[in-house]
Design a protein around this nucleic acid. Structure first.
Lengths: 199, 199, 199, 199
DNA sequence: TATGAATGAGGGTTCATTCAT
DNA sequence: AATGAATGAACCCTCATTCAT
């Protein structure tokens, strides 16, 4: 059954199918056949567009990081006239809501370290996102003049990242658990971290 | 010429073998054949004692929860004569270090939701661990007389759990990332959360 | 479809099928599936009896060498009361006729060097066969008192082997070629070599 | 932007690429895709110029025969003023050294019978080469006035061919075997055959 | 003339599992 | 209680080839 489609369109179909399956069943349990079946092509066809299974994953990762960074950047830019604390708060919100809106991307991007062998971490948008967070943190530090506490901005960034990741991934992984009112929890979570940093 | 064994004894052997493989080679690479070879039986024999592979894994999962709960309990009991804040702090430490010491257990226990279909969450040690955390949190609240802020102890527990899980899972998932001095980060992380709660 | 068979019987079936296919289509073009189909089993079954494709080949090789050596040995022993020239002649005949009677074995054993990586050549029956030939050659040399020509017995053995192999493999590879009366050619071929050595 | 090319030119490019791959990586590892990549076209394009893969291989095969015949012819012509025995000797040398220099050509040409189905043996250069050998043999017979032995020149040619093929193919197939000093063996081998014929 | 898109067949191998004994 | 025999389904991936454009 031959159809006529833009190459980019098929590539997109593959990526879309792969993303969904990767989320639902985990990278290891997704086979090329499954992806192929899902888009109505033969497994062979996929190999025209991607060298192998790993390349699909890599593509997905970069895409996911890109979207993620983009969201954070918007939150950062949008509150340009606010205090740095508010900007930080907004970014934290953006982080968590990105994960909730795009659990598939988030899952692939942060809950498995699938780049183990590729190690071009430094120039990916994942790193850029972290750098952006770090920037806000530094500004936030200056704003608050954390005089006595000489805690490095890195530790602070790590702590924030970890806390955000923690709530996001739990909410994704255990959706049926009783989290109370989700939005309230999120607000409280972020508030707690930021308050904690100010002391 | 094998000497007679109690059924429970063989069951134990199977679990032991599975656990070892599981910890040595990682969750993904445990196969029935490997387990069988390790204990000197045929794969078929395993099916006498366990319905299928999943049942072995579930057994292991519960074991993991048990260990986890045990560790938290020790931390809780050990500081019985201290302030509740310190007890909370200790439990937080215990949480993170358990994950770092038993990354594979932690991984199946909290980073994959293997019980998706079994839904007996409520009576597992995972839940007990959470309840224990919640207990300390309540005591901690009383101690601090968080008068004005009527934030539910549940939200607080969730926030703590999420933060702890966040750092733990990130440290496990991205070990080669530059986290600075790990112990200092952990201490700072916990301190930040607790401070945040006090405001 | 389950049957009841001796393990050795099935192993033999596999070997038989593999031998035929290897000859007909060449090692590279024989798939495990083909072998399996030929004997009416699933490919998986073969893996119960052989670790992988290569192991089947190795088995076949050893078997072939064994038979080959056996035939030569018989020819050697049988003419124990004859002159060494006659014994040599008989062995040469045995060599060629073995190839013609067992083209499949001969093909696998001598026309492809499939042991490239295994290199336990020295203790195989292939080597033993060569040593037997070498023995006769030495006796033949002594008998003829090749005084002046100090050609090593090794060169002589190699030359004989090469000549025998040449005719055998050509007769196998190009059966439709017009070789004249085959037996006469064989006799003449052997006679020529031996005469050549005596000069 | 490719400049226009003569059909024959592209056909040549394909053959050239195929030959190189063929000689570099061996007969088994030539794939249409590799050939195509090597010449900078799509696999599809090749099918415009050749019906299928076999046709390319056949083309190459004929080329191999051509080269082979050419080498023998040179040896034959070169010693036109020598005795026929010497001419025969030279041709034998040429035969073996061709095989050693072009093992891959030799391999497809004589060690696999690829033409099984095509059966145009009679007019190929392989046959011509054999005829050339036969010619020398006849001249050699006349020269030696093999009076008594009414052995057909065909038997003699076959015997020579077989012996040459035998050494050549063994040297190619088992290169790591200890053949002693190769050139000496080759000389001895040829000498033996020719001496054998003279008796 | 040349290609991009697609495929069907097949490659070796591993897996959890079953069933008769 | 334990096994040996066997399987079906799946794994990733490569191949020669075709067809519409």
């Amino acid at each position: 059954m031959r159809r006529k489609k833009e190459p980019t369109e098929i590539k997109k179909e593959i990526i879309d199918a792969a993303r969904q399956l990767f989320l639902e069943e985990g990278y290891q349990h997704v086979s090329m056949r499954k992806i192929a079946t899902k888009i109505g092509y033969t497994p062979t066809t996929i190999y025209i567009y991607f060298k192998n299974k790993e390349e699909i994953l890599l593509h997905l990762l970069e895409e996911g990081y890109g979207l993620f960074y983009h969201e954070l950047k918007i939150a950062y830019d949008h509150a340009f006239d606010q205090s740095h604390e508010i900007r930080l708060f907004n970014m934290c919100e953006a982080y968590i809501y990105f994960g909730l809106k795009q659990p598939d991307y988030y899952n692939i991007a942060f809950m498995n370290n699938l780049e183990k062998n590729t190690s071009k971490i430094e120039n990916s948008d994942r790193y850029n996102a972290f750098l952006l967070l770090n920037t806000v943190v530094k500004e936030f530090i200056q704003e608050n003049a954390f005089s006595e506490m000489a805690q490095s901005d890195m530790d602070i960034s790590h702590t924030i990242w970890a806390s955000l990741h923690g709530l996001t991934s739990l909410l994704i992984t255990f959706p049926q658990f009783d989290w109370g009112e989700q939005n309230r929890l999120i607000q409280f979570h972020i508030r707690t971290i930021i308050q904690g940093l100010k002391n």
